[in-house]
Design a protein around this nucleic acid. Structure first.
Lengths: 345, 345
DNA sequence: TTGATGTGGGAAAGCGCATTCCCACTGCAA
DNA sequence: TTGCAGTGGGAATGCGCTTTCCCACATCAA
């Protein structure tokens, strides 16, 4: 990647390096118009493209914003990514992407790589976990992030604070009221559903999942209902699908109507798909609700009851956009939790 | 983003800059083990993170790969992005992301920004168009890309060559056999569908859309069928949705059974959703097929007939992964094009 | 006319690192 | 002992740019 340099431009225009720099790369000092014109012409003729690396080195600010997600192809993350991308665009920055499948070790490496590139800020989306086997990874990740912050970096965290961070300096947590919203969902569901509840959750220790489970149980309690049984599985579509057979059996065996809360939309979709293969239909034989309100799934039938989260805004907020309103979700009841009249319990 | 520098490490370790560099940042010359150990200790104590900007400047290779998509939240693009991301990871690079909504002007700016960052290569996904109003934009984009290539950059293009590129030097086109696959789809559909065909296409001049339309028509011709009528709309879910009402009317008015080919999956989903609101059911009242085989939509019901494209592989290929096999799609007939026995035409 | 003030361009010093070149030192054969 | 190749560390240069500092010149009031 060689290209023409500023000094070549300066030479061609017959001015000094300093002047050329002032003309081309925005400085407070504006050279005279005729000179500026000469410089611009020279730059144009040479096809000059400023070397952002060198600029970053010289003014120690890279114009980069690092984004860490579990999987960029997961619609949850890609929606957030869109928000981050937009904020970056507004701030005249570029976004550096890292997918980590959620492994703390990988996230740590990503942070180090971003730090190496001197990213101005890092957005870390995706749930961390407090499970014992992740402990070491979390500690290292936190240490890496702390170091990054200490060196003047900004970290935007989606959802909940970084596990094990030793300081709040430099961290900006975008609060997502998972617990409250899940509670709200439970209350609203309890209003029309007289049967049992069951939660399809992610692995124990996964923050987001745990928050939503806790909230849902609290909502049930508030509505005077017994706590729901919990089935744990993967936090993705496959996890939901895997939980299907057991659920189907349960539904067929029990004469009480079941309402399933899957802690995110893709899991709910997975569950629904699996149930369908077992001959269990939503909402005829059971009802289900998700969480996130993923856009790509909005045409899914039966329309999925869920909790809307402004994912794009979340991304924007995490990227430090000041004009975006704080996160506020909303319960959306749709077809998937409508109990057909003839089968009320 | 200040941080400790190599020379601080060197001083602490009591060695020269050169030695520290050799120890820490992979050089062919390996200093003695005891010295190396001292340097590593010092680096560790200071929390040294090499400045990738400076490294890039010094050895003029940035380890960056730029990715241009229309919309990162579109599952088509996010799937490709995942592939690019994986390839980058394997190559020990990072990916720089730019979303452009497909405007040639924006894509040009993105290319310039990548060039400024001295990205080793650029992947440009998403269809370009040959419409007259985009002509100027295309020219400028091509010029920017050409310049980038001339300066030693590599460009990976998804689908079809860059419109107006003056050279092939540096370009690597990942061929996607849109036309052949669409033809294959038409042939397979014609085998079981006796009624009419209709195509819901993107705007005229959009390469991918045009290719698929052309292929489909050719397939129909091969099957001895008359050419399908074409409705043009937006190349996304909203476009498909917008086409719904007119289609519904048509379907209701005609007694011939209609098979719709939407040139991509999200459009097909949009059409289906709109038809549903008009009381038209797939596949009862009409059938529909899409293109792309988007993963997030696989649980959609009726299961969408489509053409499978290995999007992740496409991303990997475009990012220059040598181990990935060339693109080969496959027609997938599913529920959405199954004609119920009782309503055969 | 003189000195004060302002204006605008140029020289040069880094930014943090890789790398080339140089040199001191070692070991070994002659 | 001398000479030579080989080893390994250090000084210095440059990557492309920003920015400070300096200086030449013009302008204007006294």
């Amino acid at each position: 990647m060689a290209a023409s340099t500023l000094s070549e431009v300066a030479r061609l225009a017959g001015v000094s390096l300093a002047t050329a720099s002032r003309v081309l790369n925005g400085s407070s000092r504006k050279p005279a118009e005729d000179i500026a014109e000469r410089v611009r012409e020279a730059a144009d003729k040479l096809g000059y493209v400023p070397n952002a690396q060198a600029q970053a080195l010289a003014k120690s600010s890279s114009g980069l914003i690092g984004l860490i997600v579990h999987d960029i192809a997961d619609p949850y993350f890609s929606a957030i990514a869109r928000g981050v991308q937009e904020a970056a665009r507004q701030q005249n920055r570029m976004v550096l992407l890292a997918s980590t499948s959620g492994a703390a070790q990988d996230e740590k490496e990503a942070v180090a790589a971003f730090a190496a590139r001197r990213a101005d800020s890092i957005v870390i989306a995706g749930s961390r976990s407090v499970r014992a086997e992740d402990k070491q990874g979390n500690i290292e990740l936190a240490a890496e992030l702390d170091r990054y912050c200490r060196n003047g970096g900004h970290v935007g965290v989606v959802g909940h604070p970084v596990v094990g961070a030793s300081t709040t300096e430099g961290y900006h947590v975008v609060e997502v009221p998972n617990e409250e919203l899940a509670a709200g969902l439970a209350v609203e569901l309890a209003a029309t559903h007289g049967g049992e509840f069951l939660i399809v959750a992610g692995p124990e220790g996964l923050y987001t999942s745990d928050d939503r489970v806790r909230g849902f149980q609290r909502g049930l309690a508030d509505a005077g209902r017994p706590a729901a049984e919990i089935i744990r599985t993967g936090f993705n579509r496959a996890g939901g699908y895997d939980a299907g057979p057991a659920l189907a059996e349960r539904i067929k065996a029990s004469e009480k109507r079941l309402c399933i809360f899957a802690v995110n939309d893709v899991m709910a979709i997975g569950v629904t798909a699996a149930l369908r293969t077992e001959g269990v239909w939503i909402p005829r034989d059971a009802t289900i609700a998700g969480f996130d309100d993923i856009e790509t799934l909005r045409d899914f039938r039966p329309a999925l009851s869920t909790v809307h989260l402004p994912l794009e805004d979340i991304g924007r907020l995490a990227a430090g956009d000041p004009d975006t309103a704080p996160v506020s979700g909303a319960v959306k009841l749709r077809r998937s939790t409508e109990t057909p009249v003839e089968s009320q319990v």
